[in-house]
Design a protein around this nucleic acid. Structure first.
Lengths: 229, 229
DNA sequence: AAATATTTTTAGACTTATCTAAATTATCAG
DNA sequence: CTGATAATTTAGATAAGTCTAAAAATATTT
């Protein structure tokens, strides 16, 4: 039997290319406007010179537009490709949490690998198997197969005022440390939170979660998304 | 957020190394004895000179023993590593067929990619999720986490004599063409087959499957494993 | 607006895994 | 046992993706 080699390297885009597109996609959402070489380098933990090389390559492939010294913007093609990688990442995260009972702070690195498996059919079937979820375990929206994302009007918990209530719909940062803190406090997607008090001096809050009342710092409030009730 | 790069390239062995180990493992099982450079090259669809390079690298890592012009043999370490990759491949195949309803002739290429995802925990949980299966959808045994394989005493259908019965337990070749032929004839793992007649001239047979009786060539009989009943 | 600092790019080098072509070793037939 | 053939290895080159160091462009400060 002869083994076909590197099936997945033939599939349109390389691992490195997909990772660059994904990073640029995320940076575009935050920054609104051209994404700088340095920003990409920092996010990907590489050197700016490496970014320049790759960005030129992606520009030749029409996945982004690039002018020397001016930063980059994804083209429609590039955005769709990036969204597709993110779709795969988030679907796999749902699989890991819902089916394999991983904890929501354990799935990122594994999904980081799974997202590069190339097979349209696989993702389509995985999506169906999971019941076509709209959000991943951290509350982030899962792009559809055309790369479109359902945008929801969510706020940061820190934007709520005293006496307002909200339901947790996602996290802005998803480091293990933060997710484990939330677990300890019994906060997860769907948890209802009431603001009992807010300190203007340092932005800290007293909140109620179930029967428990406790203090949270500004940093916590600025990393938790809620929808007001 | 800073993204750690190439998490999975840090995980002990590269994609290429894992593929070489897997190929050599399979060749060792067939060949009984040293595996030649040319045999590896043919199976992996590369050139012998590339094989020599990689084999020297794997020898330095103590994954196999190599003497110039004499071929290679896996060490215990190498064999265990290879078996682990095969374990992952076959568990993913079970997942694809049992959970995502893929057909048994569609799963190989996808599993070929999934097998390189590095996470012990993932495989351990996947195994449990699937009910710790012993065989993949083609009837091939799934090595346990220590790399040990349950060997079963299976025969080729072509070894059966007239009037003997057997249950299909696997296929020797698993090309799409062959698997699709078997489907057309309603033969799958677990199907009972009775030999009604055998032609010594060309090795062809007349067999009974369910209510159907039909002719099969020698080549078919030599690629189907059965356990006698 | 010139001087300084920062960002970005270029140039050249390295690593991994591959290739071709040439050289070497082994094997087999007579 | 010797020469022909086949298998294997070596040497040098290539491509992708990265790096360092230096040069060029842009931004900021005074």
């Amino acid at each position: 039997m002869v083994i076909k080699k590197y099936i997945y390297l033939c599939s349109m885009f390389s691992l490195a290319e997909e990772n660059y597109l994904k990073a640029i996609y995320h940076l575009e959402q935050q920054a609104k406007g051209e994404v700088s070489t340095n920003a990409i380098a920092e996010r990907m933990d590489t050197k700016p010179s490496s970014v320049t090389d790759m960005v030129q390559k992606l520009a030749e492939k029409k996945l982004l537009s690039y002018k020397r010294y001016k930063g980059v913007l994804l083209t429609a093609d590039g955005r769709k490709t990036a969204a597709n990688v993110i779709r795969k990442h988030r679907l796999w995260e749902v699989f890991l949490v819902e089916k394999l009972n991983f904890h929501w702070d354990e799935v990122h690195e594994i999904a980081e690998q799974l997202e590069h498996v190339h097979s349209e059919e696989l993702i389509s079937r995985l999506d169906k198997f999971l019941g076509s979820p709209d959000f991943d375990p951290h509350g982030d929206p899962i792009p559809d197969k055309h790369g479109n994302v359902k945008r929801t009007e969510k706020k940061l918990l820190s934007e709520l005022e005293k006496k307002q209530r909200g339901v947790c719909v996602g996290v802005r940062e998803s480091s293990s440390e933060f997710l484990q803190y939330l677990d300890k406090k019994k906060i997860t997607i769907g948890t209802k939170i009431t603001v009992l008090g807010k300190e203007f001096f340092d932005g800290s809050m007293i909140i109620q979660v179930g029967r428990d009342q406790f203090f949270i710092s500004k940093k916590i409030g600025e990393n938790l998304y809620v929808q007001t009730l």
